[in-house]
Amino acid sequence: MTSAAFLIFQPLFKKFIFFVDNIFYMIIYYKRNFFKGKTKLDKVFDFTILRELRKKEGLNIADVSERSGVSSAVISKLERNGQQAAALETICRLARAFSLQTSELLSLAESRAAQKTSETSHKSGGFKFREVQYENVKCLYASAPAGALVSRPEAHKEDFELCWVLEGKLLFSLPREKHKLSSGDAIQFDALQDHQYQALEDTKLIILHIKKNKRF
C-alpha cells in the first residue's frame, strides 16, 4: 500500500475501530440489562471525570459540545452531578470527543464510584463462609473446626484464587501438589484446577476469587 493510500484509509480505519468498540459495548450492555427494561446506564458511574479530561485538553464545555454533538447543558450536568445517569449514545459521543473508546471512558468513570454491597453466608464441608462479591472479585471469610474438609468450593474456572490463613493450620491440595499452611501463610493458584481445603486445627482464613480478565 502506498503512503498516499495509507493516509486516505487511516482515518476510515480509526472510525471503523471506534464503531466496532461501541457496538461491542452496546451488545454487552443490552445483554445484561435488556430484560430489566433499562435504557440508561446504571448510576454506578462518576462522570465528573469529564471535567478533568476537558481541562487536561484546555477545552471549555462549548468546545466539548461542538466536538461531540452533546448539548452544553447535558455536559455541565454530568460534570456537576457525577453519577448522573446518561444515555449510551451520549457516552459514545463524549468518548469520541476525547479520542477514547466508549469502554475506556466508562472504565475511567466506573473506577471513581464506590459501590456498596452486603455480605451473604453459607456452609460447605464444615466450613462457614461469609462473603461479599463484585463483578471483578469475591472475598470470602471462612472459619472451620479441625477436620473440616471442602473440595473445590465452587466451580470458578475464570478466576485466580488466593488463600490467606489468619489463624490455625490448613492442608491445601491440588491434583499434583499439597501445601501445609500456617497462620500468616498465603497461596495463589488458577482456580480452574481441582482444589481442596482441609482444616488441620481450628482455622480462620480469607479467600479471594479474582477475575482473570478484570481489573480492580
Rank of each mutant, 00 (worst) to 15 (best):
V70H: 02
K211R: 14
E104Y: 00
E167W: 07
R93K: 13
D42E: 14
Q196G: 07
G37F: 05
V165H: 06
T203A: 00
G125D: 00
F160I: 13
C163L: 10
Y197S: 06
L88E: 04
R176Y: 15
A109T: 08
F13G: 09
S65R: 08
R215P: 09
N81M: 12
E135W: 06
R67G: 06
R32L: 11
V44P: 06
F47C: 00
S121K: 06
G69D: 03
G184Y: 01
L181I: 03
I23Y: 11
R112G: 09
A109H: 06
L174K: 06
G126R: 01
R176K: 11
Q193W: 08
S99A: 11
S124D: 14
L7E: 11
L50I: 12
R112F: 03
P175D: 00
M26D: 12
L88V: 13
E79G: 03
C92A: 13
F18W: 07
Y29F: 15
S173C: 15
G184N: 05
G184I: 00
E135R: 07
T90W: 00
S71Q: 00
F16A: 10
Q83D: 12
T120L: 12
T39A: 13
F45Y: 15
F6W: 11
S143C: 07
I206G: 04
V74A: 05
Y29M: 08
I23V: 14
A146M: 07
P175L: 03
F172S: 04
R32P: 05
P175M: 04
A142L: 13
N60H: 05
L100A: 01
L105G: 05
R96P: 04
F35C: 10
S107D: 15
I27L: 13
I187P: 08
W164F: 14
K38P: 12
Y29I: 01
A148F: 06
A4S: 10
R152N: 15
A155M: 14
S71H: 05
D194Y: 13
A87Q: 10
N22A: 08
E104M: 05
S182M: 07
L106D: 04
A62H: 01
F172Q: 03
V150H: 02
G37W: 00
T2P: 09
F127L: 05
A155K: 11
S151F: 10
A97F: 04
L149A: 09
M26W: 11
T102F: 02
G147L: 03
F9R: 07
